[in-house]
Structures are given as C-alpha cells and as structure tokens.
C-alpha cells in the first residue's frame, strides 16, 4: 500500500471518531417524508432516521434553538417542567423513543400538549426530539450543547448531574446512545 493511501486511510479513521460533530457539507439530505415507524408499533425496529439526529451535535443544537423559539421552554422550562411535565427525569407518559417524541410534537397529546403540525418541518421535529432526549441525558455529554443561544440564568446543561436518569422503557430505547 502506497503511503498517500495509508495517510488517507488514517484520515478516515480519525474522521470516524468525529462523527458526533459531523455535518456533511455536500448536504446529504435527511429524509423529510419517509414513513414514520412508531417504536410503539414496532419496538424491534427503531426509526432509521433517529440516529442521524440524536448522534449529531449540530442537530441537537438546532433542536435547542427550536425549543426556545417554539415556546416549548415556556411549559417545559429547560427540562424541569412547569406548565408541562419535566423532560429531564425518567418518566415518559407517551414514550421516550425518538419516534414517540416526534409523534408527540406532531400530533399533540390529550392532556394539553399542543400539535405543532404545520408549524415545523419533519426535520425540525426530529431535531427537537433529539434535544428533548438530551435533556434527560439520553445522548452523550459530548453532543449536548453547553449553552443556549442567548443568555440564561441557569448553568450549562453539560454541568448538570452527571448521573443520568434512565428511561423506564428500555425496550423502546433501542435507538439509544450506548
């Protein structure tokens, strides 16, 4: 094997280690309209789109911005809850998988969660879902955003309790981090 070839192989290996931060500059489009595979319907097969979002710091960070812009924070605060339930704990009324959270955002839920259908694109809902999961530390610390876009009276989420509360529905967490 020639040395340029070896070098490029090494670069590839190094890059693979960085995929948490990766953003494809060629714009490999994330699917917008594919079938929604609810984890509840098919727990064995998590939605293939999930991993593209929750394992990517850029998508989580976009979700964080949407979380403020769409007033999610008004009810759920920065995860601790208030008008709506806490998202930073282990209790999930409507399921903790990416697909469940996207369903919740898209269609609303009967006890007050409004539907954001028509206000967000599918991709934005997946970004939001990825951020929501990061609040309960379902994503690695390296992917969580350290700070908000604006000022916050709180501390960076990366400084929070390092012992992550675990979801009570591990089966549905197939698409989880570990």
């Amino acid at each position: 094997m020639s040395s340029p070839c070896r070098a490029s192989l090494l670069a590839l290996v190094l890059l693979a280690g960085c995929d948490e931060q990766a953003r494809d500059p060629r714009g490999h489009p994330l699917p917008e309209t594919g079938p929604l595979l609810s984890a509840a319907m098919n727990p064995a097969r998590p939605d293939p789109r999930a991993v593209d979002y929750y394992k990517n710091a850029f998508e989580v960070s976009q979700g964080q911005q949407l979380f403020q812009w769409m007033n999610c924070s008004g009810c759920h605060s920065n995860g601790g809850g208030g008008m709506g339930p806490a998202l930073s704990d282990t209790k999930w009324r409507y399921g903790s998988s990416m697909a469940d959270i996207v369903q919740t955002i898209a269609n609303g839920r009967p006890n007050g969660m409004p539907s954001f259908s028509g206000k967000l694109t599918q991709a934005e809902m997946w970004q939001l879902a990825a951020y929501v999961r990061s609040l309960s530390q379902h994503v690695p610390q390296s992917i969580r955003s350290g700070r908000t876009e604006g000022l916050s009276v709180g501390e960076p989420s990366t400084l929070r309790d390092p012992h992550p509360p675990r979801a009570v529905t591990p089966k549905q967490d197939e698409a989880s981090v570990e």
Partner: peptide, 20 residues
Amino acid sequence: GGLVSGGFDPRDPTAGLGIF
C-alpha cells in the same frame, strides 16, 4: 407547590418559571 403536585424537576433552576 406545583413542584410536588406536578412532579417537576428542581435541578433545572428555570423550572416552573424559575420558582422551583
């Protein structure tokens, strides 16, 4: 008191509009 009745998470200092 919603902190207890609603089962919210006071680790987030902004929870409950900051009151928790």
